[in-house]
């Protein structure tokens, strides 16, 4: 039997969820310190973007007590990326169409998790996985090879998987089971019911997160756009249970 390499694990309460870390690192790397820095990054981003904390720059911007000129660079950058993603998705991802004012939450969780992962990678880990409440950013290859195996939550059976995918960078899944009413159709302002579950795999979790949100809201209209989206794959489960996936979706055959 081959020796088992034991990863460091950590769970951090932040952004209204729990973010869990799995880290494989050489002995020369101070994993505990690195994890602390990654968590600091998450907490800092949460303080900046939280729409639940009234004193966050994002909340104050929404409330009109902070002008666009006064926003931190990170917020300006995220809003700019949101604009690009709004265009890319044909308006199906639209933080400006959310009730209660501009709300980039559909991208920020993935963006912040990606930044936390970058801290670990820059610190010299061999492989790492950051799971931000069901949106995951990965780097490196876990021991044993084959990439990170990620189960896709089944939309109607919370503890079953609809599929398993092998991920090298990022995967996000969105569905109305998570936060009903949060999937707003920007064209109507009403709650969208076009998809039961939408999963996007690709190189960057901020983008994958936004695309999964768009796919869950827009359903097949957004799915059809993926042929033009290089590097990103889509897996859509309709409200009728019908499943479609782009050709490159890295499904792992069931054992």
């Amino acid at each position: 039997m081959t020796a088992v390499v034991v990863p460091a694990r950590h769970a951090e309460e932040v952004m209204g969820t729990v973010v869990s870390f799995t880290v494989f690192a050489p002995a020369s790397v101070d994993t505990r310190t690195l994890l602390q820095r990654a968590c600091d990054s998450l907490q800092r981003d949460d303080r900046m973007f939280s729409t639940w904390k009234p004193d966050s720059p994002m909340s104050r911007y929404r409330a009109g007590t902070l002008s666009a000129d006064e926003l931190p660079d990170e917020v300006v950058g995220v809003l700019e990326r949101c604009r690009q993603l709004r265009t890319l998705t044909g308006g199906w991802f639209d933080p400006w169409a959310m009730p209660g004012g501009v709300d980039p939450t559909g991208m920020v969780k993935g963006w912040a998790a990606q930044r936390a992962l970058d801290v670990l990678v820059d610190g010299g880990v061999d492989a790492a996985l950051v799971n931000a409440g069901g949106d995951l950013a990965a780097a490196g290859t876990p021991p044993g090879g084959g990439g990170w195996r990620i189960g896709i939550r089944h939309p109607w059976q919370p503890v079953a998987f609809a599929a398993v995918v092998a991920v090298t960078a990022a995967v996000a899944t969105s569905g109305d089971y998570e936060r009903p009413g949060q999937l707003v159709d920007p064209t109507t302002g009403a709650v969208s019911r076009r998809a039961a579950s939408a999963t996007v795999v690709g190189p960057d979790l901020a983008v994958a997160d936004a695309l999964a949100t768009a796919l869950a809201v827009g359903g097949s209209d957004v799915f059809d756009r993926f042929s033009a989206l290089s590097g990103y794959e889509a897996y859509l489960i309709g409200v009728d249970g019908l499943e479609v996936a782009t050709e490159g979706m890295p499904f792992v055959p069931e054992a």
Binding site: L129, I150, G151, V171, T199
Partner: peptide, 15 residues
């Protein structure tokens, strides 16, 4: 467990 994580909020299975 055969998997490294779960995508889509399913906190119980992940934990």
């Amino acid at each position: 467990t055969n998997i490294n994580g779960v995508s889509g909020a399913t906190y119980t299975s992940q934990a």
